[in-house]
Structure formats: C-alpha cells, structure tokens
C-alpha cells in the first residue's frame, strides 16, 4: 500500500475582486476540492480556461493561502503555516511552469538558477559539491554541461523547460506540481519532456500533480485524474475509467471535443455555443447547469456533493444521486 504524501480536504481558494469603494465580490477559483496523492504517483488535473486548475496547483504548494480546507503534506498540516516555517518544507515541494520564457530569471545564468535552491536549503557544503550536483542535475535532464554558463535567452523552449525541471529536482522533492509543462512546446519536444518526466518519476518515486488542458497528455501521464469546471472537481477517478467511461456531462462533452489524430474519426458537429463563465459569487447549484443538456430542477438549487460511484470514482452530478428523484441515465 503506497503511502499518501499529500492529503487535501475541502480546499477552497477565493480571490477578492474590488468593485467600487464598497462592494467586494469573490472569485471562487477553487471550491471544495479533496484528493489524496500517493508516493510515486501522478494525479492529473484537466480543465479549460477558468477551471481553477492552476490555482489549485499553486494553492496546494502554498504559493497562495487557502481560504478554506486543509492541506496535509508529509504528515504536516501546512494549511496555515507561516512563511518562515514553510520555507524549509519548500525543498520537498516544487513547481514547473508552463511558459519556459518567463519562469527563469533572465539575468541569472543557468548555473545560478539551479544553484539557488541548493544554496538556500544548505544542501551542499562546498563549491565543489555544488558544481558536482549541478552537473548531475543537468545530466539527468539531458542537457549538455556547457549550458551552465549560458543565460535563459540563449536556450530553446525545450532546453529552458529542462532547466526548470532541473531546478525543481535540485532539492529532491517528493512532490512536483507541473503546470502545463509542455503546452508551449512543439510536439516533438513535448514527447521528449514527457518521457523525461516519466523516467524521473520511476527513478526518484516523485509524486506529480500534472495540470493541463490537453486531455491526451494528461491521460498519458496520470494514474488518476480530476476534471475541473469553474473551480469544482466534477469528476475524479483512475485515468482509464474516467477517459473511457466518463460520467459527468461536462467530462463527456470535453472528451468528445478532443480531435483525434485520425481523419476517419471526425468530430461530430457541435451545436453548443457556450463557454465557461467565471465563478464570481456563484449562486448555489451545479456550475455546469446552464450548459448541461440533462439539467434537472435540483441542479439550480443545490451544489451536488461528490458521489461515489464505485471503482474509486466520484462524480459531482445530481444524475448519479438517489436524492435527485428523476432516475435519468
């Protein structure tokens, strides 16, 4: 039984939006998210713009302070830990960003970018040890050693992303949040990076939270998957079952929208003309109800709770609740 390195319970993150002098509205970017991540496993987060997936990833590693809920990392409750006490824990949790052109300090050489986490957490005791460790890391991400003395702008997107991964690996973290790590890269480079990430996981037993809007990539990388819509996890479960047998209407719509690299499998004409709305001071009820072809009366009244449907799967949809009344589907 693999140990759980991360337990998230009822996590919510709200951002205040000031409108005028008196009114403050809140963007419910993440609402009531719970999941458990085991050592060496990957949980994928699928969502479109405004789904809250990036906010979730950043809140879990405390780049934002949670508004509600709990985060238990390596047995410690880090939900409200002050920065000072959090800092030493940061060596166990890292993040890789989407845009390799903005996630590296343009005025720092590659060597220093990778050295910083080692120096901050005092993981090396001599200049020599530092150099060796940097070389080791560059080798692991398959970058030539001479890259050390270059600046980020001299490297290609794929190379920069490798540097970002090396930086994340420097402190041997147990958890890495990967926020769309390959979305800005070409297909051929993407494949290289994804394989690298998989091999790192096999070697170091690192756990990943893999965030992406690209369902094919998320399903390739993840053991378990969470589908987010408007801040809410609408469906969660083992990747294969969720992808092959989606339950939530949104998940179904999403999966049917993915273009297959096969001219014989054409997308059916999509009638819908709708996009997600930002969840600002959302009224009660399912956030997908305006677009859902199966919406029931109760969907506009009460937030659907996560409903277990067996096989370690949960869905937030009244269609799967005995409470809902009309047994549809």
């Amino acid at each position: 039984m693999a140990e759980a390195i991360l337990e998230v319970e009822g996590l919510s993150k709200y951002f205040p939006i000031r409108e005028g002098l008196l009114r403050t509205r809140y963007l419910h970017a993440v609402e009531d998210v719970s999941f458990v991540l085991e050592k060496g496993k990957t949980i994928g987060v699928i969502g479109e713009t405004g789904s809250g997936k990036t906010t979730l990833g950043k809140t879990v590693i405390r780049l934002y302070k949670p508004s509600k809920g709990r985060i238990i990392f390596r047995g410690t409750d880090i939900t409200s830990l002050p920065e000072k006490r959090l800092r030493p824990l940061r060596k166990y949790m890292q993040i890789v960003y989407q845009d390799p052109y903005s996630s590296l300090n343009p005025r720092m050489r590659i060597r220093d970018i990778i050295a910083r986490p080692l120096l901050i957490h005092r993981l090396v005791s001599s200049r020599e040890e530092l150099d060796n460790r940097i070389r080791e890391l560059l080798e692991e991400v398959e970058l030539p050693i001479n890259v050390m003395y270059r600046y980020p702008h001299e490297l290609s997107g794929g190379q920069r992303q490798r540097v970002a991964i090396a930086r994340a690996l420097a402190t041997e973290p147990e958890l890495i949040v990967l926020d769309e790590p390959t979305s800005a890269l070409d297909v051929s480079v993407q494949a290289q990076i994804l394989n690298l990430l998989k091999s790192i996981q096999r070697t170091h037993k690192t756990s990943y939270i893999f965030i992406s809007h690209d369902i094919s990539v998320v399903s390739y990388m993840s053991d378990e998957v969470m589908v987010m819509y408007s801040g809410v996890v609408v469906e969660k479960g083992p990747t294969d079952t969720v992808i092959n047998n989606p339950k939530h209407p949104y998940t179904r719509m999403l999966i049917s929208s993915v273009p297959k690299p096969d001219p014989r499998e054409k997308l059916p004409e999509v009638m819908e003309v709708a996009e997600p709305r930002l969840p600002i001071d959302p009224p009660p009820g399912c956030r997908y109800r305006d677009r859902c072809p199966y919406a029931l009366h109760i969907c506009s009244k009460k937030d659907p709770p996560p409903i277990s449907i067996g096989g370690r799967r949960t869905v937030r949809c009244w269609l799967y609740s005995s409470e809902a009344g009309t047994g549809r589907e």
């Binding site: 950043k58 890292q94 960003y97 903005s102 590296l104 005025r107 720092m108 910083r116 930086r167």
Partner: peptide
C-alpha cells in the same frame, strides 16, 4: 508579477533575496 519571481518563492527564496537577485536586476 512574473513567473520567475513566483518560482523564486517556490524554491524558498527570502523576500530580501528576491528583491536583490530577481527584481532589481530586471
């Protein structure tokens, strides 16, 4: 607001260090 400044927080840089190493030079 840049990603690399947030990334600096993520690796555990102190506020002073962020100001001197990341913000000022840029």
């Amino acid at each position: 607001e840049s990603d690399y400044v947030e990334a600096a927080r993520a690796i555990g840089e102190s506020r002073v260090s962020i100001l001197l190493r990341y913000i000022l030079p840029n």
